[in-house]
């Protein structure tokens, strides 16, 4: 318990607030998935997984590298499941076809996570550099799938704009813009090696130098965008699910 308090004390207040928002969003989205159609199950499970991926901040065992890497893999699975859900919704809008069972989504997601866990277990313990690479891949996938989801949401909105739920899709559009900024800003820092992880790596493990001092404004803007867009992402996801829940009740 003492360890946990210590951990909380070390967390950046913004990160903590962001985590609380994601916790709320995860709870709302998971609750939402229970009584709704399969399409919503994919979307809400995906958003719930974001919370799990963000929960590394309060994970007392996060210093185990394999567990740390697993958080980022969960994040990658999250956006893939969310995209699958939006893709299904888009297919429904075009063909009005609804197929499959909820249990398949739950089981498939679980199997992917188990397979990822097994992959980490059977492989050597990842180095901080490897973990950073995994995080960078996660961010890259998030950025490109966010753009794809914004386009899918636009198309879905055009198809159903006179339906009650259409405004909910505008809210999802806002969510993905926030997520794009959140993950995109982090990816930007990672690509130019201005992220904290790289700075830690080169400070301890390599002889390499960083040009971060030459671009303080860019780094500062990116870090600020990353903080607040992350905060807004969690907040907007929770709000969107509550809004859609009200629209569908």
């Amino acid at each position: 318990m003492e360890q946990l308090f210590e951990l909380f004390a070390q967390i950046n207040p913004i990160d903590l607030i962001q985590l609380i928002f994601w916790g709320l969003a995860g709870a709302v989205s998971f609750y939402f998935s229970i009584g709704n159609a399969r399409v919503w199950t994919s979307i809400s499970i995906g958003f719930f997984l974001i919370f799990l991926s963000q929960a590394y901040a309060i994970n007392p065992w996060v210093h185990y590298y394999k567990l740390s890497a697993f958080h980022y893999i969960i994040g990658t699975v999250a956006i893939m499941v969310i995209t699958h859900g939006f893709l299904e919704y888009y297919v429904f809008c075009r063909t009005f076809e609804i197929s499959g069972k909820k249990i398949v989504v739950f089981v498939s997601t679980l199997l992917i996570l188990i397979a990822s866990g097994v992959f980490l277990i059977v492989n050597p313990t990842p180095s901080p550099n490897t973990i950073r690479n995994i995080r960078m891949i996660e961010n890259a996938i998030w950025v490109f799938l966010s753009i794809m989801n914004i386009e899918l949401i636009r198309k879905v909105y055009v198809a159903i704009k006179d339906s009650a739920i259409s405004k909910g899709f505008i809210a999802f559009g806002v969510v993905f813009v926030c997520i794009f900024l959140w993950k995109g800003s982090e990816l930007y820092l990672q690509i130019f090696q201005w992220d904290k992880d790289w700075q830690d790596i080169i400070a301890i493990m390599t002889e390499e130098t960083s040009d971060i001092d030459q671009y303080p404004m860019r780094v500062m803007i990116s870090q600020t965008v990353n903080k607040y867009a992350g905060l807004l992402s969690g907040f907007s996801v929770g709000g969107t699910f509550i809004y859609i829940y009200r629209l569908l009740k």
Binding site: N36, A37, V39, W40, Y89, F92, F96, I98, I160, S163, A164, I165, L247, L248, K249
Partner: peptide, 12 residues
């Protein structure tokens, strides 16, 4: 009904 669940409220 199944399709409508994706678009409108349960009351409607």
């Amino acid at each position: 009904e199944r399709a409508a669940k994706l678009l409108i409220s349960s009351t409607n």
